[in-house]
Simulated scan of single mutants.
Amino acid sequence: MPQPLIDATRDLYAGRIGRETWIRLIEARRAHRLVPKEHEDNEGHRRVMCPAEAGKVQCPIKSRSMGRGVQLPLVDPEPSPAGPLKVYRRRSITLAPPEGSKHWQALEYGGEQWQKVYFRLRNSVERYNGYAKSPLAEAMEAAGGRRIRGIAAQTVLLVFQWLTPTNGRSKTGPRPWR
């Protein structure tokens, strides 16, 4: 995968690219993914194909993938003393359950559905944090209400501060257990 595609999220957080460029780069990663060849078996093993074998990219190691179309990205695998990776030498490989589950995601990273779910969840967490830290609501940042040392003791006192009304304020905010 080209370096700009690898560094897309890092560049977004560093402010070197905008969100639209990030979305475009994340979308371009799709061509470089392993392609499922069949469903996983009863034990969780899954057959996957190299993207060049599936016709998603052109690769000089798989000469039959070259010249399929100028719109396909050209990959340049890094040379290694051990030779090309196993996936480059074969048409497909089998991923064992630990290998497959390690990289499995319910939603494709950066995809449209991922953005809807992730950004909605993040907005709700940030809203909740704002409520908890507000001096007019929970005032969790005000250490004056927790005059004790140590992170464990501070945590216990924060829980009690959260559970009991103080200074006549009502606790009308969101509760994690409801």
Rank of each mutant, 00 (worst) to 15 (best):
H32Y: 15
H32N: 11
R33C: 10
L34I: 04
V35T: 11
P36H: 07
E38K: 09
H39P: 04
E40K: 06
E40V: 00
E40S: 01
E40C: 08
E43Y: 10
H45Y: 13
R46F: 00
R46G: 02
V48Q: 06
M49S: 12
M49L: 09
C50I: 00
C50A: 02
P51I: 01
A52G: 12
E53M: 10
E53V: 08
G55R: 02
G55H: 00
K56P: 01
V57L: 12
V57G: 07
Q58P: 00
I61M: 05
I61A: 06
K62T: 01
R64T: 09
M66N: 02
M66H: 02
G67D: 07
G69Q: 03
G69D: 04
V70F: 12
L72R: 08
L72T: 05
P73G: 11
P73R: 06
L74C: 10
V75M: 11
P77H: 10
E78Y: 03
P79K: 13
S80R: 13
P81I: 12
P81N: 10
A82H: 15
A82N: 14
L85Y: 07
K86Y: 04
K86S: 12
V87L: 05
R89Y: 03
R90S: 08
R90D: 05
R91S: 09
I93E: 05
T94N: 09
T94W: 06
T94C: 05
L95P: 00
L95W: 02
A96W: 00
A96M: 06
A96R: 14
A96S: 14
A96L: 07
P97N: 08
P98C: 11
E99A: 14
G100N: 09
S101W: 12
S101A: 09
S101N: 14
H103V: 10
W104F: 13
W104N: 06
W104I: 00
E108D: 14
Y109C: 02
G111L: 02
E112S: 06
E112T: 06
E112N: 03
E112Q: 13
Q113S: 08
W114F: 12
Q115N: 12
Q115G: 01
V117Q: 11
V117M: 03
Y118L: 03
Y118D: 11
Y118F: 15
F119M: 07
R120D: 15
R122I: 14
N123S: 15
N123M: 07
R127Y: 08
R127E: 15
Y128W: 15
N129G: 01
N129K: 13
G130Q: 13
G130E: 08
L136T: 15
A137I: 14
A137Q: 14
A137P: 00
E138T: 09
E138L: 14
M140S: 10
A142F: 05
A142E: 13
G144F: 04
G144E: 13
G144Y: 06
G145A: 14
G145F: 07
G145P: 02
R147Y: 02
R147H: 04
I148K: 04
I148H: 04
R149W: 02
G150T: 10
G150M: 05
I151E: 14
I151H: 12
A152M: 04
A152L: 04
V156E: 06
L158K: 04
L158W: 08
F160P: 00
F160A: 06
W162V: 01
